[in-house]
Design a protein around this nucleic acid. Sequence first.
DNA 1: GCGACAG
DNA 2: ATCTTGTCGC
Length: 232
Amino acid sequence: MFRKIDYNSLSVQEATVLQKELKEEVIIAPYKGPIQYIAGTDISFDPFSTHVFAGIIILSFPDLQPVAYSLVKKEVHFPYVPGYLAFREVPALLDAWDQLKIIPDVTVVDGHGIAHPRRMGIAAHFGVQVDKPALGCAKKKLYGIYEEPTNEAGNYTILSDKQGAPIGSVLRTKTNVKPVFVSPGHRMDITDSRELIEKCITKYRLPEPTRLAHNIVNQFRVGTLQEGYSEM
DNA sequence: GCGACAG
DNA sequence: ATCTTGTCGC
């Protein structure tokens, strides 16, 4: 196993070294076993504030009904640098994870998994830290080459790295709506991650875990929901 | 040098 | 990411 990371006062250079070390812990292989609970994570913050609001919501699967959530407010100093999102958001997500009484079988993280310059996007980083299956679902591309999938819901193309190796999928979740970028983070593969996201789409562009996580985190930020763990 | 650049 | 009205298109 790797050592526990001290996320305080890390430089971008040191973060790069950590990503290369953590990369060795990532497991990309077919997912095994049933799924009873699927989680969604999200972060909300004020661009001019120094803290972030993190949340994890747990949904039953495959019916996608919310059953519990965990909310945490945390001070953050690491700056937002494309490619290093995990160092800003994972610390707070790990605190939220520690409050959970129900451990999800899979977690959908807002951002990319291995579709990253060093194959260590936030979903891979988070997945390795909790050592549970995780995948990333992002609204924009960070890294990779792809062709636009056709306009019909359900169509997708493969996102590849500069050498042509597949690193994720560009999935059209709704007809005539911008696609989302899906990639495995840990303990699952490219096909698993795409198929799982497809099963989490109802009437919106974003999968329910991500959409609902975004909702509770925003309610937390404006004061409608309180910090801590709660079942629904 | 120029363009790209998760949240 | 967040702050916001109207507007275009299916």
